[in-house]
């Protein structure tokens, strides 16, 4: 009985893993230049065949602007990307990030991004968003697992 249960569980995990793989899991190191300074981190999630993606992200301050010395240290949460225009090499998407800044402040960040296919596995991502009331730019390398 135990063996059967284990076998069923193992098969389920394999099937589930294959299904999840079909959705394309990815990780992406990321850097973002904002008015308060450079922030770095990454995000990880899954992307569908139609290039819609949902991921968890994490950013922290690398440097702080002398002119805008806010105490922004952490920003983490969920982000999603919805394709607006796409072809085989490029995908232009709208993005939305929602999460907590400094473990306390709920923040929603709208943006846009362009995903450029380098190889099947690697995509370069350039994005712009609206943070702290000003434009911010970011770049990341999406690696499909």
């Amino acid at each position: 009985m135990k063996k059967t249960a284990l076998l069923v569980a193992l098969i389920s995990v394999i099937v589930l893993f294959q299904k999840v793989c079909a959705q394309n899991l990815f990780i992406a190191p990321m850097a973002e230049s904002t008015i308060v300074g450079l922030q770095y981190g990454g995000y990880s999630g899954y992307i569908t065949k139609k290039s819609f993606s949902i991921a968890a992200f994490y950013l922290r301050c690398k440097t702080q602007s002398e002119i805008w010395p806010s105490q922004q240290v952490l920003f983490y949460g969920i982000q999603s990307s919805l394709p607006i225009v796409r072809n085989q090499k490029l995908i232009f998407s709208g993005t939305l990030r929602a999460g907590l800044a400094n473990n306390q402040f709920m923040v929603v960040v709208p943006g846009v991004e362009t995903r450029i296919r380098i190889t099947t596995r690697f995509h370069s991502v350039l994005g712009a968003s609206w943070r702290y009331g000003h434009a911010a730019i970011n770049t990341s390398l999406m690696i499909k697992l």
Partner: peptide
Amino acid sequence: MKKILVALFVATLLMACEPVID
């Protein structure tokens, strides 16, 4: 493709409009 290039161009223009922080 044209739409993407136009969108990129507009985004670049918008970023270029950001004034000096000070």
